[in-house]
Write a protein that binds this DNA or RNA. Structure first.
Lengths: 165, 165
DNA sequence: CAATCTGGTTGCTTCATGCAACCATATTCG
DNA sequence: CGAATATGGTTGCATGAAGCAACCAGATTG
C-alpha cells in the first residue's frame, strides 16, 4: 500500500498528506479562481469525475473546502475555500513563481498576477526577517521545535549540518 | 494512464509535474537538510528503494538535482541541489509554515527554522508589493501573461471573477 | 585480494488513477 | 403540474504507480 504521511512529525509531510495527491492542488487553484461547483471543476480540469469527487471530499474532510448548500428546491452543493484553504495562497504563489521562473522563463509566464490597485505584478516571494531584510539560505538554521518527537530531536542532534544556500 | 501536466499552460501544473509526485518534495527536503547519498536518503525516508531511485533520476533529469561523481577508485555518485533546486526553499517554507499553522498549530511546530544571525524564527512568508506592504487576497488580479495560449486567454475573458481573499 | 558496503535493479503484489456507463435528485420549460 | 434535461455524483473495469524483498555489479576497506 502507498505510504501515508499521517503520523509523520514534519509539517511538510503532513501538508502533503492534505494537498499532495495528484490533482489536489489544481482543484484548489480552481477554487481560488472562483470555481464552486462540481460540474465547473470537471469542465476546467481534465480530471476523472470519480477522482474529482474523491478530491473534493478529501479537501472538505481536511478543512480546506467547505460544502455549502446552494439548492432552492432541495439540496445542491457548492464548494468554497475555508480560511485554511485561502491561506494556501502563499504556497500557490510560491509554486507559480517557481514554475514561471524555471519552467517557462521570464517573459513567458502563462498567467500574470498583479495588484489590482497599482496594476503592477506581484513581486517574488522572499524569505525576510522581521525588519524586512532578506535572509540568505546560509543563515537558515533548522532545529527541533516545541512539538518535536524523540526521533526528530535525535536526528537534529546527529546532524548539525547547515541547510543549503 | 495517469494524466501528465507536461503540456499544460500553467506554472502550477508544470511545477507539479516536476515536484508533485508522491515523495518527491520530501526527497528535496532531505537534500536541503544536507543529505547527498542514496543510502542516506533511504535511511532518512521510509521510501521504497526503487521509487527513491526513480525520484532521484527524475529530479536530475528535470534539473533540480545534479549527480556528481564522488568516487576515489571509480564512479560513485552524490546528489546535490542545483540553483533550481535551491530556489524551492520558498515553496518549502510556504508549505512548512502552512502545515505548522493548520496541522500542528502554533506552539506545536515539529521543527523550527530560524535566522542564525539573530536566533529569531523565520517570520511567515507574505505576499508583499514592491514597497513591502502586504497585498490582500482581494487585490490580487489574475490575467493572461505573455506566454498565454488561446485557451488561457479565452478562459480569462470568460471569467473576470475575483480571486478569493 | 577477500569481505563488505554502496547504489542500485528486478519481479511480484497491491493500490491509485483513468474511462465509460449508469443513476437519483434538482431544476427548467411548456 | 408533468416531462425533459441538467447536476452531481457512483460503480465496474483496465492500467499504471508505489511497496516489498531478493538479488547483483562495482567500489571500498581491512
Amino acid at each position: 500500500m502507498r505510504h501515508r504521511f499521517d503520523r509523520e512529525n514534519c509539517s511538510v509531510a503532513r501538508a502533503l498528506e492534505v494537498i499532495g495527491d495528484w490533482w489536489t492542488l489544481l482543484v484548489v487553484r480552481e477554487a481560488m479562481l472562483g470555481t464552486r461547483r462540481f460540474a465547473d471543476f470537471a469542465a476546467e480540469l481534465p480530471i476523472a469525475r470519480n477522482i474529482l469527487a474523491r478530491r473534493l471530499n478529501h479537501l472538505v474532510r481536511r478543512g480546506v473546502l467547505a460544502r455549502v448548500n446552494a439548492g432552492t428546491h432541495g439540496t445542491r452543493y457548492e464548494y468554497e475555500l475555508t480560511s485554511m484553504g485561502k491561506d494556501l495562497a502563499t504556497v500557490m504563489t510560491a509554486l507559480r513563481q517557481w514554475g514561471d521562473r524555471w519552467v517557462f522563463g521570464e517573459g513567458h509566464e502563462p498567467v500574470l498576477v498583479r495588484d489590482r490597485r497599482t496594476g503592477r505584478p506581484v513581486p517574488r516571494l522572499r524569505i525576510l526577517d522581521e525588519s524586512g531584510a532578506p535572509i540568505s539560505g546560509r543563515d537558515l538554521e533548522v532545529l527541533p521545535g516545541p512539538g518535536a518527537g524523540k526521533r526528530t530531536i535525535a536526528r537534529y542532534r546527529r546532524a548539525a549540518r547547515p541547510t543549503s544556500s
